[in-house]
Design a protein around this nucleic acid. Sequence first.
DNA 1: GACCAGGCACATC
DNA 2: GATGTGCATGGT
Length: 216
Amino acid sequence: MNKKATLLDIYKLLLQNLGPSNWWPGDSPFEIAVGAILTQNTNWHNVEKAINNLKQANLLTEEAIFQIDEQTLASHIKPSGFFNIKAKRLKNFVTWLYQEANLNLLNLQNYPLETLRPKLLAVSGIGPETADSILLYALNKPIFVVDVYTKRMFFRHGLIPEETTYSEVQELFMDNLEPNVKMFNEFHALIVRACKKWCTKKNPKCEQCPLKNLTA
DNA sequence: GACCAGGCACATC
DNA sequence: GATGTGCATGGT
């Protein structure tokens, strides 16, 4: 199959059916990065509660999280679940920002993607999806974000084998699409929204999914 | 009351 | 390198 044409067809189909997503919700790049860590294996609704707690306590800045002790931080982010481990991960992240970027996330924008991504992945608690979410949604770097939804949706519609790894799925997109921040942003958001709507666990055959028109 | 949610690190074999 | 497990709240 022509992978590039298929990917573009999927993108258009999802955009037509769902409309633009306006991701990632957040008032600042740092808030987006914090959200990326808090949403690990967690419903976004719960993450919003944690983020609102941080906002109300004036803690949603690099400096504030750098200064606060881990226990107190954990108490503010309780609604997001895994709060002890996530408090540690946020501290790891801002400690790294202190060393690497003078506690200003935006100072990282000058780094090329190829050097920045390995640096992010070296921070304990930041894996591929979190790193790529920060790179794309907070720093506007052209990297495609893969998640369980991407894998599930593409597997269900016969586009990838079930055991495909994160990097393999990512390469499918990166090798067949021009690097385009706005498009990568929208495409990933559309996949998540479409999967939540049509490719749920309770709907294993993806009834109603517009992608059925592609692969039927 | 079971199941799930926009992962990741670590232990063990 | 593959597989299993802990982390934890809140919505459905």
